[in-house]
Design a protein around this nucleic acid. Structure first.
Lengths: 110, 110
DNA sequence: TAATCATATCAAAAGTTTTTGATGTGAGGT
DNA sequence: ACCTCACATCAAAAACTTTTGATATGATTA
């Protein structure tokens, strides 16, 4: 469970650095090659590589090789997982979907 | 805009520490006094205070004084803002709500 | 096959966050 | 008025993350 927290934290860690948010902002307008991102950001090549690894491991960004180049894009799946996780983490048990009051059902049964 | 990134990062910073995720998990079962949280967590009093400040400033947690005690609870508003922000940050421009293809409208006009 | 390019990895330095124990503050009880 | 309790703030230490420049890897071109 502590491990679970650690793993969950990883998804949000991807989102809590200003450079990584700037990278996401650039990717919102479509897939970009690392070299293009490098041009637009105040980062060294090795620094960009470091941040891209974190973003890809979080699942929020996906990558694709094309010869020498690596192209990065936002992952819809990754986003959906992150949104679900965020909701789960911040929604009281009582309010969760499918956990509504069951008293009516209980009365009807038997 | 760089400032905006910094501010956005703050909401997610709240979510990227395992202790803070553990606090949220405890709050999911309802409002809790600081002293109760302290009992359940491996944290010193000053450490808990430090984390609660970060959670409250992110808007995800709300607090309420009752005499000497401070009660903390999840904020539905805070959650909704965080979810919207997360979606915005990770959704390509083309896919955003209200930004669908307008070619039909353009043809109809004039 | 060697030269070059794009990106990844590494290790050390710089920067940031978290933990810790000590001390401050403000409410409530005696 | 004083004491105690709950919590906040502080400053230093410990832990962690990010940046940096150097070097490694693997694909492409000459």
């Amino acid at each position: 469970m502590d491990n679970e927290m650690q793993k969950n934290a990883k998804v949000f860690k991807a989102l809590c650095d200003p450079n990584r948010l700037a990278i996401l902002e650039l990717l919102r307008s479509g897939e970009k090659c690392a070299c293009v991102l490098l041009e637009q950001l105040e980062l060294k090549q090795s620094g960009l590589s470091y941040h891209m690894k974190i973003l890809c491991e979080s699942g929020i960004v996906a990558s694709r090789q094309e010869g020498k180049w690596t192209h990065y894009r936002l992952s819809g799946e990754g986003r959906d997982r992150a949104v679900e996780l965020l909701k789960q983490l911040t929604t009281p048990y009582a309010e969760q979907e499918g956990s509504g009051c069951t008293c009516r059902n209980e009365r009807i049964a038997i």
